[in-house]
């Protein structure tokens, strides 16, 4: 996880455009994330910050433009172990109970070969990831027994288990109380100190604010601001763009919607 000065940028988006259901959501995105940088993606609901993260991680295809990860075009990128992804409000509970350790261990999948058992190195990385997020004493507890904030930390540990160079988090602090946000910020602080590159989608920075190197504010699918994070204490909080939120992809339940009837 060490940073060399001339290492390729972990994320480069050029002229990026993403469409969902034929409707362009993101347009003309140019974004470079430097090695070791802690970048916060901010913006109102529907501004496209989560969409951008999903495009960077390949969950959504680009309609135009290009994404490259660690200097490799997305189509040729195979070093998935270099990326750790924490999805938005993931469904941590599933039909079958699983322990915190099992969920975190599933993050090690990026570095494991099929049909082979966990190596000692794997186990060490998993234990380390659980310790970084401060759940060391809860590893054998069922994940559904944890509070929302602790579940979120377990999901971050899962992303860390693969020892990624780039960590991408989609609203990890949403619906998490202040104490857990602090624990989350502490964990991210440790990673930043180790030289990891972090891209974080957030509504509010809260305790993470001092860690942020650069804030990028999205508005209606475009980058509206890129620069130092402006704290709420500056008196003018630019991160929360004004204006109403709106659907980029209107829901069409039936083709005959709007032909009278109903409203």
């Amino acid at each position: 996880m060490s940073v060399t000065p001339d290492a390729p940028a972990p994320v480069v988006v050029r002229g990026g455009s993403v469409a969902i259901g034929g409707r362009p959501i993101l347009r003309g995105i140019d974004l470079t994330v430097e090695p070791g940088e802690f970048l916060a993606l901010l913006g109102a609901n529907g501004s496209g910050k989560s969409t951008l993260v999903r495009a960077i991680t390949g969950l959504l295809p680009m309609a135009a433009g290009s994404v490259s990860l660690f200097g490799t075009a997305y189509a040729d990128f195979r070093d998935w172990h270099r990326i750790g992804f924490v999805p938005q409000r993931s469904t941590a509970s599933s039909g079958v109970p699983s322990t915190v350790w099992e969920v975190v261990a599933s993050g090690r999948i990026t570095r494991r070969r099929p049909f082979l058992p966990l190596s000692r190195e794997d186990r060490q990385a998993i234990a380390d990831a659980i310790d970084v997020v401060g759940l060391g004493d809860r590893a054998s507890i069922g994940i559904s027994q944890l509070s929302g904030g602790q579940q979120q930390r377990a999901l971050i540990a899962r992303a860390l288990a693969g020892q990624p160079d780039l960590l991408v988090l989609d609203e990890p602090a949403a619906g998490v109380d202040l104490a857990n946000q602090q624990a989350l910020a502490d964990a991210l602080g440790v990673l930043k100190a180790r030289g990891a590159t972090i891209v974080l989608v957030a509504h509010e920075l809260g305790p993470m604010e001092p860690l942020i190197d650069r804030a990028v504010v999205m508005r209606d699918g475009r980058v509206a601001y890129s620069g130092p994070a402006l704290g709420a204490r500056d008196g003018h909080d630019h991160h929360h763009a004004e204006g109403s939120t709106h659907d980029h992809v209107p829901h069409v339940g039936s083709p005959f919607d709007g032909l009278g009837g109903g409203r």
């Binding site: 390949g58 195979r78 998935w80 999805p87 993931s90 599933s94 261990a105 599933s106 999948i109 991408v168």
Partner: peptide
Amino acid sequence: LGLLPQLFAVASDPEFARVAGL
């Protein structure tokens, strides 16, 4: 049983599994 870790990852969180390269 051989692909247990992979199948577990895919079944518990498909999006995470995709970004993990599965």
